[in-house]
C-alpha cells in the first residue's frame, strides 16, 4: 500500500466543482444531486424523469474523458480489493443507500448543505461505520 499524500489544493478545487454541480442541478432542475438516488430511481418502476437522470449520469461517466482530453491523466488506480469483496461492497452500498435514502453525495454534501438533521445523522453514521470497517480490515484482521 503506497503512502497516500494529502492533496488539499486539488481536493479544494474538486470540492468546489462538486458543490457547483449540486447548485447547478438544484437551480436548473430543482433536483438533489444524490448519486444513489439518481441511479436507484431508474430501477424503480414508478420512477420519474428518466431523461434528466440519464443525462446527469452520462455527464458523470463522460467527465473523466473530458479530463483526459484536457491532457491530464486521471489520478488513482483500480480497486484495492478482490472481486468477491468488491461485489459484496457494491451490494451493501446499493442496498444500504436505498434503505437509508442517500450516500456520500445525497446525505454528505446535499443534505448537510441543506442542514438536514437526517443527513447529518446518516453522514456521521456511515463515516464512523466505514472507518470502523477499515480499522477491522486493516488493523484487526489484516494487522
Amino acid at each position: 500500500m503506497p503512502v497516500e499524500q494529502f492533496t488539499p489544493g486539488s481536493a479544494a478545487v474538486g470540492g468546489v466543482l462538486i458543490g457547483s454541480s449540486v447548485a447547478l442541478l438544484w437551480l436548473a432542475a430543482g433536483r438533489i444531486a444524490g448519486i444513489s438516488g439518481i441511479l436507484g430511481d431508474l430501477l424503480n418502476p414508478g420512477g420519474e424523469d428518466v431523461v434528466w437522470r440519464v443525462a446527469f449520469l452520462a455527464g458523470m461517466i463522460a467527465a473523466p474523458w473530458l479530463y483526459q482530453l484536457a491532457g491530464s491523466v486521471p489520478p488513482g488506480g483500480g480497486p484495492v480489493v478482490g472481486s468477491v469483496l468488491l461485489a459484496v461492497a457494491g451490494g451493501l452500498v446499493g442496498f444500504g443507500t436505498r434503505l437509508g435514502n442517500g450516500c456520500t453525495s445525497g446525505h454528505g454534501v446535499c443534505g448537510i448543505a441543506r442542514w438536514s438533521p437526517r443527513s447529518l445523522v446518516a453522514t456521521a453514521l456511515f463515516m464512523v461505520t466505514a472507518a470502523g470497517t477499515v480499522f477491522v480490515v486493516r488493523h484487526v484482521v489484516g494487522g
Partner: peptide
C-alpha cells in the same frame, strides 16, 4: 453539464 462538473470534481480531487 452538472453531471460533468460532478464527475470532474471527483476526478480532480482523486
Amino acid at each position: 453539464a452538472a453531471g460533468l462538473l460532478f464527475g470532474l470534481g471527483l476526478t480532480v480531487s482523486a
